[in-house]
Design a protein around this nucleic acid. Structure first.
Lengths: 355, 355
DNA sequence: ACCAGGCGTGAAAGCGCTCTTCGATAAGCC
DNA sequence: GGCTTATCGAAGAGCGCTTTCACGCCTGGT
């Protein structure tokens, strides 16, 4: 940008023929064909003579040619990468939301699932964490054409990002049903069903004094799990405490809960991480799990296996869901006109030792 | 690629003036200046008259112009993104190395640290997990000019990727001292010192029958921590078991260790995740921590706080290290000629309840 | 008043690629 | 055998941007 070296310096030397960045012209020359023919070979056009193709491929190997993606993108309008935008709500303690995001196994599973699905298509993931303070940066990034599409994760209720992204007209898939109806594809798990499975399981275990530690109620999944749990209990008066989906939050919530309702014998915790904390708190307070209190989590993340006793939980196939998001996104990219679709996964009860 | 729509179709319509993707020419026209001037305003060239600058900025806002990155990259040879390549060794159970990578808090911390450091520079991260089976894909990706530089993480001992990347001539920073001397910058923590701190602390606590669960010995950090621990004990005959840096691995290793050496009273575990598993196994086997066995971990990751008792550990400032890697990388990108440098961080003992 | 020297601006040349168009050559038909 | 009809390669026009180069204008010294 600044202080450009005079002509004849490094850059120019390197880029002349024979340098480390041969161009298509040089390949064409080496092969004795035109640039267009080289392009056709590279892009697998069927109408190239087999012998010529062979010659060109040899020339590519000999020169060590690699296409320049910027030049290609300029004309194809494709970047072969997609953004994974992780939109977190602002929290008072938000000084390190980066840390929170990247430390939560949920996001890890999302990343793994998406990467796995995209990899065979040779499409790469640009990870973009954001809170509402820099939505405009994200939007600018997307508008610049860096990516062909967007996987948008974890919007809290008032998150304006999904709408903004949709309005950009860039292909996008959201990780949950948007709270207000916007025309966008999404992949979700049936949160209410999951909560109901938890409730029914606890009842089946003979528990009658149920309670729940919910997720943040400004996050749809938090709200829906709570709502589903209550609905399954016919909206009986179930004690509930709002948590924040973190381990420490679950621990604190459990302490409060037991202080207010010491006789609880069945607990549904809206994610595994909080359940792990809750388990710990309850054990510290002398409760035996599951004898005194039966506990059901949600996610079936690795955290469920880190608990003692092993955590009964509601399985959510996060990796698969992320992979599905990626597939749907690819479909949208391939056929820009297509209407939004939604895919809903069914959760399943996984019984372990905490109930 | 195939079945191109006839001229006059969507794409053409959208790209004509007034469409959602105004070009610099349209801004120039709207502002009544030349394209060059618009470019200068956008890139903050100092030599533009204040009034003109103002007019241009208004025109940019009015048209909703956003530069096309592909076009810009084509001429600047800059992409404003860097790759975070996570190179994992092949393991027999490697069917889901993606999962392993993205579930390990270590990688999360790396990502958080790097993202945080890059963000103010408006540089984005492309996350590329790889095992040795697709090194060539990674190399191809890098050669295509997608990124300006590479952050390379977690190479096992025989990993050829660092050398390959260096030979590409693309700016790179590696996460640990390369096992064979190659001219590349790296950021590391003083592993041996960390292990020594652990050893000394255990001795100070009066423990004399020490043992260790090491990391994989084909990973430098695994080897160095073991070596440092032994060195601190003057190479006395310390029982050691090789682990795999996972929670389950730590658990298994601890069981074996106690079976062979039931009288161990001080244990150094080469990372927190394994320590968490080991703690659990030992407690299952009736050992009280720290009364019967004192345990020291390594990393000071979130796992250390998930243990009961809270884990004494060796703090490694992973986020800071990743941020430093990013900074060094940026320096290399800004000044391609500069010689490699290395930065070594000092670990610190964090005393909690397990010793 | 005249010219040298700057400074600010515009014109234009590419960056490396894709893809259409067009021409050449080979093959098929009456 | 002369014509039309496929087939395939070459030429060239951009994609949207940055940057050089040159020019016009204003200022100031003589």
């Amino acid at each position: 940008m600044r202080a450009r070296p005079p002509a004849g310096s490094r850059t120019e030397l390197m880029n002349k023929r024979g340098g480390p960045h041969p161009t298509m012209d040089q390949v064409a020359e080496a092969a004795g064909v035109s640039r267009a023919t080289v392009s056709r070979v590279i892009n697998g056009a069927p109408s190239v003579d087999a012998k010529i193709r062979e010659v060109v491929q040899r020339a590519i190997a000999a020169t060590g040619y690699v296409p320049n993606v910027a030049a290609r993108s300029l004309v194809t309008r494709r970047s072969n990468s997609v953004a994974l935008v992780i939109s977190e709500p602002d929290r008072p303690d938000n000084h390190s939301f980066l840390n929170r995001i990247f430390t939560d196994p949920y996001f890890g599973r999302i990343t793994a699932g998406a990467t796995g699905a995209l990899r065979p298509h040779d499409i790469h993931l640009v990870v973009i964490p954001t809170d509402s303070s820099d939505h405009h940066q994200v939007v600018r990034y997307l508008r610049q054409g860096h990516v062909d599409g967007v996987l948008l994760i974890s919007s809290h209720e008032q998150d304006t990002l999904p709408r903004q992204v949709v309005e950009l007209g860039i292909p996008a898939v959201v990780s949950a049903r948007p709270t207000s109806p916007i025309p966008v594809s999404f992949v979700d798990v049936d949160q209410r069903l999951g909560a109901r499975l938890a409730a029914e399981h606890l009842l089946e275990r003979g528990r009658r004094r149920l309670a729940t530690i919910s997720g943040p109620l400004d996050i749809p999944s938090g709200l829906e799990r709570l709502d589903g749990f209550r609905a399954a209990l016919a909206f009986a008066d179930v004690p509930s405490i709002e948590g924040d989906f973190t381990r420490a939050g679950g621990e604190a919530a459990a302490r409060r809960l037991l202080a207010e309702h010491p006789d609880v014998d069945g607990l549904f915790v809206a994610n595994d991480l909080m359940a792990e904390g809750a388990l710990r708190a309850m054990q510290d307070l002398g409760r035996r799990i599951p004898e005194d209190v039966a506990v059901v989590g949600f996610d079936d993340s690795s955290a469920a296996l880190d608990c003692r006793p092993l955590l009964t939980t509601i399985r959510q196939p996060v990796e698969e869901m992320a992979a599905e998001m990626a597939e749907v996104l690819l479909a949208h990219i391939a056929a820009p006109g297509r209407l939004p679709r939604s895919v809903t996964f069914q959760p399943a009860l996984v019984i372990r030792d905490s109930t």
